Amino acid sequence: MNSIINSISDYSAYIIIGMAAVILLLFILVLILFRSLNKVEKRYRKLMRGVNSKNLEELVIGYLDKVDEANKNSVEAVELGKFLQEKMKKSIQKVSIMRYKAFEDVGSDLSFSIALLDDNDDGVVLTGIYGRHESTTYAKPIDKGISRYDLSEEEITVLNKSINSK
């Protein structure tokens, strides 16, 4: 036992320096841990902001309910979009117009032909013939790009321009 005490006495300076190094290392480690703890505490406070006496679980459930509501609204919007897209196919989408001089004795391009078609090339060709003493307007139905009635050259031109416009 005496020899151990003598050995410790002989190396006491080295032991003290070693212990001081370990204490310094532990002190640095404690500072690093306090800094990490401070960061975690800031994140915790940020997470809990706005929470008075509410439970965090209630807050998360409230947000999940809002997400479900948003998803439901999104599905409804997609369905409405599909419905409107189908409705739009039946609206006038293709239009072509041509003015021309139907008779040589009329001074200007006062006659016209207009093709109004939907996405399925269904619609109507309207033609207005202006003469010096009378004016006539015709409407000819179009079904899938074809008319059951004879079309004039101008009506065929506006019909083809309208069909090829999209």
Rank of each mutant, 00 (worst) to 15 (best):
S12H: 10
V40F: 13
G18T: 08
I97W: 07
E104Q: 06
T157K: 15
K42Y: 12
I163H: 00
K89F: 03
G131L: 02
A102L: 02
I92P: 00
F112C: 02
K161E: 07
S3G: 08
L117P: 06
S111H: 02
N55K: 11
K161V: 03
L116A: 09
S113I: 04
I23T: 13
M88N: 13
V95W: 00
F103Q: 10
F103M: 14
L151F: 04
E86H: 03
N38P: 01
A13G: 13
K46D: 05
E69Q: 15
E69S: 12
S162N: 14
L25S: 14
G18M: 07
T157P: 02
N71C: 01
K140L: 02
D109T: 04
K72T: 15
Y44P: 02
V95G: 01
V75D: 00
Y11I: 13
I28G: 06
E76F: 13
A139Q: 13
S111E: 03
D118T: 05
E134G: 08
S12A: 06
D118E: 01
L110T: 02
N120Y: 07
T157Q: 12
G62F: 06
K66Y: 01
L116K: 03
I97K: 11
V40E: 12
R43I: 12
E86C: 01
D121C: 03
D68R: 12
A21H: 11
S135K: 07
Y138C: 03
Q93F: 06
L159P: 00
I146E: 09
I5Y: 13
K89P: 05
S108M: 09
N71Y: 03
S9G: 08
R45P: 00
T127Q: 04
V125Y: 00
E154G: 04
I97D: 04
A70Q: 13
V125D: 03
G128K: 04
T137W: 02
E104Y: 04
K166Q: 12
K87D: 09
I28Y: 07
L151N: 00
K72Q: 12
L31Q: 12
N52G: 09
V158M: 07
M19H: 12
V158P: 01
E57Y: 14
M98Y: 15
L31V: 10
I17E: 15
E134L: 13
E41V: 08
Y100G: 01
K90N: 07
R35C: 06
A20Y: 10
E69W: 12
Q85N: 14
H133C: 00
E155P: 05
G145H: 10
R35A: 10
L56N: 06
S162H: 11
I129V: 04
K87F: 07
K144T: 02
E86A: 04
R45H: 09
I4F: 08
S36V: 09
N52D: 11
L29M: 07
Y149G: 04
E58H: 10
I17D: 11
I156H: 05
Y11T: 12
K87H: 12
L25F: 14
K94E: 07
K72R: 13
F112V: 06
S36Q: 14
A20L: 14
D150Y: 09
Y149R: 11
I5H: 00
D143K: 03
N73Q: 12
Y11S: 15
S12D: 06
G81E: 07
V124I: 09
T137E: 07
N52Y: 08
A70I: 14
G131W: 01
S7M: 10
D121A: 02
I146Y: 05
